[in-house]
Design a protein around this nucleic acid. Structure first.
Length: 125
DNA sequence: CTTCTGACGAAAT
DNA sequence: CATTTCGCCAGAA
């Protein structure tokens, strides 16, 4: 995230707000950023720079599962270490661990009014 | 410069 | 229900 501009940088900045023990889907994050798709969030997570405190492991897919790939097991372990529970089929319970969204300071800094945020949030898993 | 390749998900078929 | 389509970033080769 060398150049403070660009889609990825915006995505990383948002991911940093997800607290320990909570998770967000690629789509949830994309819904808060204009011009960003869930796919792009996936691309960004795959390219997450290390050593910058970006909790990449707290981002999973809309089905409530850690996206299958080499390294998925490590991600599940990171989440379990934070107290996130997985069902036998490897899914989390969205109502139990879902991130509720960024703080209001983020909303104002990004020109999003609270009403708009609530509408977006209502479509989350 | 071109091509390739990644941790998605809604809508159409 | 299962499968396909497509959007259009960033960095490496």
């Amino acid at each position: 995230m060398q150049h403070e501009s660009g889609k990825f940088a915006t995505i990383y900045a948002l991911v940093k707000h997800i607290p320990k023990g909570q998770v967000a889907s690629y789509g949830m994050l994309a819904s808060l950023l204009s011009g960003v798709t869930a796919r792009m969030v996936g691309y960004a997570m795959a390219a997450t720079p290390e050593g910058q405190g970006i909790p990449w492991h707290r981002v999973i897919n809309s089905a409530g599962k850690v996206s299958e790939r080499p390294g998925a097991e490590r991600q599940r372990q990171c989440l379990m270490d934070e107290g996130v529970l997985f069902s036998k089929s490897g899914k989390v319970s969205w109502p139990a661990v879902r991130w509720q969204g960024p703080p209001e300071t983020w909303l104002s800094e990004n020109g999003m009014d609270f009403m708009e945020f609530l509408t977006i949030q209502s479509r989350w898993p």
